[in-house]
Structures are given as structure tokens and as C-alpha cells.
Design a binder for these strands. Structure first.
Lengths: 234, 234
DNA sequence: TTATAGTTCTTGTATAGACAAGTGTCAACA
DNA sequence: TGTTGACACTTGTCTATACAAGAACTATAA
């Protein structure tokens, strides 16, 4: 049984997405929602906080909660899309090609920086294609401590699904850095880069619910296919 | 008078930064903090939520709140830094050169998309330099509705400071998109790009506390000087 | 007409209490 | 020995209540 405030948040999110509460409208007041859902006002406030964090509403003291124009969020300033976004739009044909799969150690820069004691890891290098166009080269270092063995079949499909559903690993948070760097000859060839030698590099350090470091990922994106969308308060 | 929970959050943040609570340690339990600060547990929980959002702690049900290794957050994977980061480290010499300042309209793509009625805006184009090296070209469209006049002196220093402190404008949130695109001849020259014609483009739509659209910014970064750090839960 | 003050909405903060649920310890039991 | 179960701790959820503070309207007074 999910928490009430999450259920209410999901319901409100739905109603906003289906424009039962349209952009620019005020949601019912907190006491009104409280009565509507038969919960206390604090519970309603927790729900509204979820929507606030998701960038769906904006709260104005003394006035109410305004639905933010959805168009404002994912503004297609250019028609360049990220792998994930394209993957969601199911018209596209996404494919994965395994380049390498081996046992190794987490790179020294990482293990030293994080003071890791166990550094044995599985290394997976994968090329992601959409409509037969190469888009991203992903390199993953996954600690053996948590995932002893990764098969080619698993690497072919979604590793995250395997980790979370089959192994019961709970991923909690990640830190990412985005930079632009020259690519190696190998990556340039994989991504079929001709006009430039630059790639967008997204490095992620992923952690589990028990705070332990779990996975290091280096994603090298073709620059013309990269897009990152951010929503920030304050 | 700031809210109690914000004061407590600030105090805890300080103690973490000064390693009175070291990385990996558990904070005192919520009831303990509640007694320590003489507030209710719910108030403590609000404080801890602030730290959680800031990525300073991680909460584990049944165990407690762990201080996250600060080194994990801003991991210097490469030595490339963003303009803002360098600006904070005061050793660096940051300068701003005004390229253009004029009255104009918000670009059509924006005004149409956001269904703006008033589109009169001030346009400012600025080149940012650090240690006499050109780093970013910023182009701003600021609605005249909120800021009727911008002088060269104001554009020379921080516009945000002027908006918030002098005009009392309250900025609430922004949406950003990061892409990599070919630069114009002019921008290439300003940034002294030779090896590549690509720049990192950060487009921001900024909104005020009353939900109104306020400013559109296009920042074109030299790719070798760009770095973006992100911290994400779940 | 214009300003002022009050009233009634709204959200923001804070409290005290209760129970659920995850984690670890330790003693009792088979 | 090894397992189970009770217990004491932790965070998570939820309630009912209260007052503060911002916003908008209205009636009153100048």
C-alpha cells in the first residue's frame, strides 16, 4: 500500500496531465483538497510538495497553487533529442551493440577518490543506436560485490531493470558531470564522427540506498544528438 | 526572522561542512535532534529534508541519517570548470565585456511558444572572460514589463543582483536545456575558437514568484571550459 | 473619489501525539 | 549450535490544532 500523499500526488499529476487542471489554473485550496481526499491538510501539503519538486505547480503564499504551463518544461528549443527521450517515443527503433564485456578493476581515479576497499568490477562497453544511427557509447564499471556476474544477454537489455527487479538492488542517487572532450579514435569511429572530434561526456557515480558506491558510468554522446533538460528552483 | 527549520538546516549544514559530523557518520536521531534544538520532531524532519535535497545526507529507514561524503558531490573528474565555479574561487580574475545593448522583441520562437502578450525586451550580449581568456557569450532578453531600463553599468556587473536587490524582483525557477551546436562566425571569433566550431549552448527560461515569464538567456560556452554538475535522487 | 482598516480567504510554520515499518540486539528456546 | 522471537531503537506516515503572514476584497471614513 503506497502512502496516501503519494497516491494523491499521482492523482493530481494525472489530472494536470489530462488538463482537468489546466495550465495557469489554481488548484483547489489545501483545505478544499483536504476535504476532497478526506485527509489532513499536512498530508495534502506533502502531496503538493511532490508536484512542486516535479515542477508541475508553483505555490504562491496567500494565493494558492498554480499549474505551471507544461510547455514551459520540455521546451523544444532545438529538435535535438537525447537517447532516453527518443527511447520513450516508441516510434524509434533503439538497439544496443555490446562492444566489450570483461572483468576488471574500477579506474584508479575513482577508487582512490572514493577510498574504495573492494574494486573488482565488471566492465561493459556498449554502443547505442537509434534507427541504425550510432548515438552513444556507454562504459559501465559495476562492482562485483553487488553484481557478481553479468551475461551478454543481460547487457543487451536494460541493466537497471536487471539490477532492480532481479537482484533487488535499490538505487538511491547519482552524481553526474557533463563536459565536452575530444574523443578517442575508437569512439570517433563507433559514433561515425567526421566533422568534429568532440563528444559530450556524462560521467555518473551511482549509489545504493545503503549509501554504498555501486556503479561508474561514462557515456560519450554524439554532440549533435545530445540534449539535457534541467528544472531548477530558486 | 527565518523559520526555525531553516535555521536548524543551516546549522547542521555548517557542522557537516566543518566536519563536526564527518562523512559516513550518522547524525543524531530525529528525537535526539528534536531535544537538542528544542523543537518538535516534525520541525527536525523539515530541516533534514533540506539537507536531503541538497545531497548532504541520505536517510535510511530504521537506521538514521548518514552524512554523504562531500568528495562524492563535486568530483573533479576533469579539471575543466564552469564560469560560475571559477568565479567563486576568487583567485581568478573575472571580467565582462558588453558586446551589445539594445531594445528589441523577445524571439518569436519563445513568445509564440509561451503565448506572450507583451514582448518588448532589452537585449544584452556580453562576453565573459577569466584571466583574459574568453569563456562564455551570454545573450539575455529581459522583458521591459519588469525591467524598463538597463544601463551599461548595470549590465557590466551582476544583473541578478540588480534585479533582486534594487528592483525587488523575486526569481523563482528556471528551465534549462543544454545542447552542443555549431557557433556563428561572430561567436567563434569572440570565443577565439580555432580547433572546432562547436559550442555548448545553455538556454534558460526564467520565471518570477508570480509565475510570469521574465527572461530568456542563451549562453554559448567554449566547449573546453564547460562543466555541469548534477545531483539526482532515485 | 481616494485612502484606510477590517475581514476572510490563501499558504507557511510549528506542535504533540499516534501508529506503521525497517533494523539490530540479545535472550530464550529447540 | 543455530534459530526464533521479543524488544528497543530508528525513520515514515498521518492526524488535529494553532497561529503567523501574504493577498484580495469590502465597507467605512476622510
Amino acid at each position: 500500500m503506497r502512502a496516501k500523499y503519494l497516491q494523491i500526488a499521482a492523482d493530481l499529476t494525472n489530472k494536470i496531465k489530462h488538463e482537468q487542471y489546466a495550465a495557469g489554473d489554481f488548484l483547489p485550496s489545501e483545505p478544499a483538497l483536504s476535504e476532497l481526499y478526506n485527509v489532513s491538510r499536512e498530508t495534502v501539503r506533502k502531496s503538493l510538495n511532490e508536484l512542486l519538486d516535479a515542477g508541475l505547480i508553483q505555490k504562491i503564499k496567500g494565493k494558492g497553487s498554480v499549474v505551471i504551463n507544461a510547455a514551459r518544461i520540455a521546451f523544444p528549443i532545438s529538435n535535438i533529442e537525447s537517447f532516453d527521450e527518443l527511447n520513450k517515443q516508441k516510434q524509434m527503433h533503439a538497439a544496443t551493440k555490446i562492444l566489450e564485456l570483461k572483468d576488471t578493476q574500477v579506474p584508479l581515479t575513482i577508487s582512490k577518490h572514493l577510498s574504495l576497499t573492494e574494486t573488482a568490477a565488471t566492465y561493459v562497453s556498449r554502443l547505442r543506436l537509434i534507427n541504425n544511427e550510432p548515438i552513444v557509447v556507454d562504459e559501465d564499471y559495476i562492482l562485483k560485490k553487488y553484481v557478481p556476474k553479468i551475461s551478454v544477454e543481460q547487457a543487451q537489455s536494460s541493466l537497471y531493470q536487471y539490477f532492480e527487479h532481479n537482484l533487488g538492488l535499490e538505487i538511491d542517487y547519482a552524481t553526474k558531470t557533463i563536459t565536452v572532450e575530444p574523443a578517442s579514435q575508437n569512439v570517433m569511429q563507433q559514433l561515425q564522427l567526421t566533422n568534429t572530434n568532440l563528444v559530450v561526456v556524462v560521467r555518473s557515480l551511482t549509489y545504493l540506498k545503503d549509501t554504498s558506491f555501486f556503479q561508474y558510468t561514462i557515456s560519450q554522446h554524439r554532440p549533435d544528438k545530445f540534449k539535457f533538460v534541467d528544472f531548477a528552483h530558486r
